[in-house]
């Protein structure tokens, strides 16, 4: 019974993480691209294109944080102390970003300041999340189920690289989202920056792929000794990259975004496959990290109730706000 629950929870948390990464990813990406936009008009379009959805995206972050404490408390009580400074930076970034998002709409005279806060908040949050991924690959110093490392163990050349990599990745998602949601000169701008971002992402992807087996011996053995099927994920991710490039050249509108999502999805699956079933690297599996079965079960009832509602609500929102955002207007209903 307890084994089944741990796997169910691993699937739920894994699903929540990728939902968050994908959905908050493109709007964080737009924030990162913000200062580079050709004019204030395009910035309006960028912000309007995510206004109806970004708030719901962060739902997954809070749900994930709460779910971890309930289902895999070891993850919660090791990751948060280990990433102490990074978590703070991420939260501060997200808060500034949220506030500037709200008040930019209500502001006429001081928009430039809210623009800056929006960019900085997005960039810091994205970098911190990328560094978290890097720290996860590196693993944590854990003794007796407690984090025993230092304050800045999470900040190494490797995690700086993953941090920058995720910023580039989010920017790529943002640019392709903008291709889908805009038209005219805004869309043309998005078309021109997408290949550049793609190259940046692939460069980081390549370095991380070579470097990862070196920082993590477990990953090394899994990729090179045991489990050859795992290679399907990077191959698929590369295929998606090629498709992003091709669809941008052909000026497709929806395909670049879908393929960019594909890059994220297959990279993520590859990462999980390198670690599974370890959830607190290098030593603890999902079963070591689980809370008591009765607690997992109690919480599962609530999540099974709320996740379909959140999904339905999300789908409905995206459906209502489908279509292009035009220069000089938001969505009006």
């Amino acid at each position: 019974m307890s084994i089944d629950l741990a796997i169910i929870w691993a699937v739920i948390i894994g699903f929540g993480v990728i939902m968050y990464v994908i959905m908050d990813g493109f709007d964080l990406g737009l924030g990162i691209l913000y200062p580079f936009a050709p004019d204030e008009e395009s910035r309006d379009v960028m912000m309007n294109s995510v206004a109806p959805v970004w708030d719901g995206n962060e739902t997954w972050l809070v749900l994930g944080g709460a779910g971890l404490l309930g289902a895999f408390p070891l993850v919660y009580s090791v990751f948060l102390p280990a990433l102490y400074i990074g978590v703070f930076l991420m939260l501060a970034g997200l808060i500034f970003r949220g506030i500037s998002f709200e008040f930019r709409f209500k502001s006429h005279k001081n928009r430039r300041w809210w623009n800056r806060a929006f960019f900085l908040g997005s960039a810091i949050a994205a970098f911190a999340q990328g560094a978290v991924v890097g720290a996860y690959i590196q693993g944590f110093t854990v003794e007796d189920f407690r984090y025993a490392g230092g304050a800045l163990d999470w900040l190494t050349p490797f995690t700086v690289l993953t941090g920058v990599g995720l910023m580039a990745g989010y920017a790529l998602l943002g640019a392709t989202w903008l291709i889908m949601k805009s038209e005219g000169h805004v869309q043309q701008w998005a078309y021109t920056i997408t290949p550049k971002l793609l190259i940046a992402v692939l460069a980081v992807f390549a370095i991380v792929s070579i470097w990862t087996p070196l920082v993590s011996p477990e990953v090394y053995s899994r990729w090179l000794d045991q489990f050859r099927l795992i290679w399907v994920f990077p191959v698929l991710a590369l295929l998606c990259s090629g498709m992003v490039y091709r669809s941008v050249k052909r000026q497709n509108e929806g395909l670049p975004f879908v393929m960019a999502l594909g890059i994220f999805l297959f990279t993520y699956l590859g990462l999980i496959a390198s670690k599974w079933p370890v959830i607190v690297p290098p030593n603890y599996t999902i079963w070591d990290a689980s809370s008591a079965p009765e607690s997992q079960l109690f919480l599962l009832i609530g999540f099974l109730f709320v996740i379909p509602i959140v999904l339905a609500y999300t789908a409905w929102t995206y459906w209502i706000f489908r279509g292009k955002v035009k220069v000089g207007e938001g969505y009006h209903h």
């Binding site: 962060e58 972050l61 809070v62 944080g65 709460a66 779910g67 404490l69 309930g70 289902a71 408390p73 070891l74 919660y76 009580s77 090791v78 990751f79 948060l80 102390p81 102490y84 978590v87 703070f88 939260l91 997200l94 808060i95 189920f145 407690r146 984090y147 809370s291 008591a292 009765e294 607690s295 109690f298 919480l299 609530g302 999540f303």
Partner: peptide, 29 residues
């Protein structure tokens, strides 16, 4: 949003020890 991370960042021993109760209860909120 910050509250849901405070327990883990600063009170991880407490979070780990009480997670069987506080995890589900706070999640239900």
């Amino acid at each position: 949003i910050v509250m849901s991370f405070q327990f883990g960042t600063n009170w991880s021993n407490f979070s780990y020890a009480t997670s069987n109760f506080l995890g589900p209860v706070l999640s239900y909120e």
